[in-house]
């Protein structure tokens, strides 16, 4: 049974269709990233999954429960939202003690998770007096008091400093590796997702346009090389003869763009030097999630 199964999800705001036949499967034990442009419906998707708002049609099952019955999972599914969602007049410790009431079988104590998330020294601070980063750490700490099987995070890196981001990435990685915790992360921070996720789903025009492992997704995209040379025509002729090289374009700045799926930049540089073609710049652009995302969503930025 998958941790999450979304089939044919449709959601309209009035006459505006946000999600149109969205399908998504998340296997247990995976770390699944959900990416999309602003307004693409990531938060709406998460809110529908969590039963926080109704949807027009489709079906959603998370840990075997429908969104309206998620409370029956008794804390096996938890969520961390883009806003901290904590009582501003409670202290950090009180917030964690409050969350303990909602855990059927707490596996960690409040001081333990405070230490884990680095908020021990703020434990007597009221939430309203904390920085956004520390509110977020507290929010994550609150979610980890039980032993959740499935954690949904909406923009978990917002407001965190570099150290905080590293801590959260490390925590996700450890929980996934040691406890088999499944994660669904919605974020605009594509490099972080590329670093941590096993799978990525790209939400575009109301649908999941791509959903696969990162290696499979990036395998279908090209690594490109930009070459700046005063002898573009001569360089093109030399490069055409190298196996695995495909000439793509010459841009307005005088860069020759080539795809090098079966070759490497060293061999290309060597071939140009041997043919006495001067090279001013050689820029390698590796396949990346950001590149793939731009490619899929180009021309549709809202």
């Amino acid at each position: 049974m998958p941790a999450l199964s979304v089939t044919g999800l449709k959601k309209n705001y009035g006459s505006f269709s946000v999600l149109d036949d969205l399908n998504l499967q998340i296997e247990k034990g995976s770390i699944h990233g959900l990416v999309g442009l602003n307004g693409s419906g990531k938060t709406t998707t998460i809110e529908c999954i969590l039963g926080l708002q109704a949807f027009n049609s489709g079906s959603i099952t998370a840990l075997g429960q429908s969104p309206k019955q998620l409370h029956l999972t008794k804390g096996k599914l938890v969520a961390i939202f883009d806003s901290p969602s904590l009582h501003p007049n409670l202290t950090v410790r009180q917030c964690l003690q409050h969350a303990l009431l909602l855990c059927e079988k707490p596996t960690r104590s409040a001081p333990d998770v405070e230490k884990l998330l680095g908020v021990s020294r703020f434990s007597d601070f009221k939430i309203k007096n904390l920085s956004l980063g520390n509110k977020r750490r507290t929010s994550i700490a609150q979610a980890l008091l039980g032993d959740p099987e499935f954690v949904v995070l909406d923009e978990p890196f917002n407001g965190l400093d570099a150290e905080g981001v590293d801590d959260v990435l490390e925590l996700i990685s450890t929980l996934n590796r040691d406890h088999g915790t499944t994660f669904l992360l919605s974020s605009h921070q594509l490099p972080y997702l590329e670093q941590i996720c096993s799978h990525i789903a790209i939400l575009h025009q109301g649908k999941i346009s791509h959903s696969d492992t990162i290696s499979n997704l990036l395998g279908s995209t090209q690594t490109t090389l930009q070459i700046k040379t005063p002898e573009i025509e001569a360089a093109s002729k030399v490069l055409e003869k190298i196996p695995g090289v495909e000439l793509l374009s010459i841009d307005a700045d005088g860069y020759l763009n080539i795809s090098i799926s079966d070759s490497d930049s060293i061999a290309i540089n060597q071939a140009l030097v041997e043919n006495k073609i001067p090279v001013a710049e050689l820029i390698l652009k590796r396949a990346s999630l950001a590149g793939l995302f731009r490619e899929i969503t180009s021309g549709d930025a809202r």
Partner: peptide, 14 residues
């Protein structure tokens, strides 16, 4: 408004 009710609804209570 502050979002705290979401935690209760998702975790334990209807």
């Amino acid at each position: 408004d502050i979002g705290s009710i979401r935690h209760s609804l998702i975790r334990r209570v209807s």
